[in-house]
Design a protein around this nucleic acid. Structure first.
Lengths: 126, 126
DNA sequence: TTGATATCTGAACACACATTCATATATAAG
DNA sequence: CTTATATATGAATGTGTGTTCAGATATCAA
């Protein structure tokens, strides 16, 4: 336990801290994963991704499904496009959006690797 | 394709829309999953969870590891506690935090079920 | 008791971001 | 060319939230 140590300059158990630091992914990776989570942290974007995983859709049908205005939907689609989570094809006046499967799968794989596995594997008794 | 239909009142392909709607999880579930993602969408909270998945830690050591002030760390821990993702025990002046394993595992399971599987299973040709 | 330490908490500030509104672009139809 | 439709986009607004700051609470030591 070592709670007899005195906390100087915000460090109680240096040994413990160094062990944790050595086992943690670097800060850049954590930020990337957090970035991906942030994208999915909005219910509207969540539902957009969900809907597009079922079927390719045009903007106005998508807007209807997620219950947003056409403009708001378009803004979200733009940010999702920038993150390469969705792609689109223009067909006349219409724009048909679908998931960017490879990239989404890759992102999920990264998340699973850096978060879930990390948690499942390190089941030690504290 | 059916892009010959006219878009009245924001609906191009009613049939398609209804199919997607029937296959989507309800909005409540989407919001719950989004809520969980929002919690992990902050790099600091991300690293807090990551660190605690390795070892039980007191607040000041945790603050040192994630590179935040003690106050900011405490605020994050409070929100994580409210969502039952972490738990803590007091030992004298110190507070030792650890993951609330059952709840975290449950949350991840829900996410995997409602997001990843959904995506993997529905691999149809559009 | 007094002083030091670890943590917590409310208020304030600053910044990020989702939505709306107005408008722009592009295509199709008449 | 003109009109209508589908989508895109920039600006503005309002809301949410992460951090800091100051101070509160609690425990331990002297």
């Amino acid at each position: 336990m070592k709670d007899d140590t005195i906390c100087e300059v915000n460090l109680v158990d240096r040994e413990n801290v160094e062990l944790v630091q050595s086992q943690m992914a670097n800060q850049k990776q954590a930020m990337q994963v957090a970035e991906f989570f942030k994208t999915l942290s909005d219910p509207a974007r969540m539902r957009i991704i969900e809907a597009l995983s079922i079927r390719r859709l045009c903007v106005c049908d998508l807007a209807y499904i997620v219950g947003l205005s056409q403009s708001a939907t378009s803004h979200h689609l733009r940010s999702l496009r920038d993150k390469r989570l969705v792609k689109f094809e223009k067909n006349g006046k219409m724009a048909y959006y679908s998931l960017d499967d490879e990239h989404v799968a890759g992102a999920f794989a990264a998340v699973l690797k850096h978060v879930v596995l990390e948690h499942v594997v390190h089941r030690e008794v504290y």
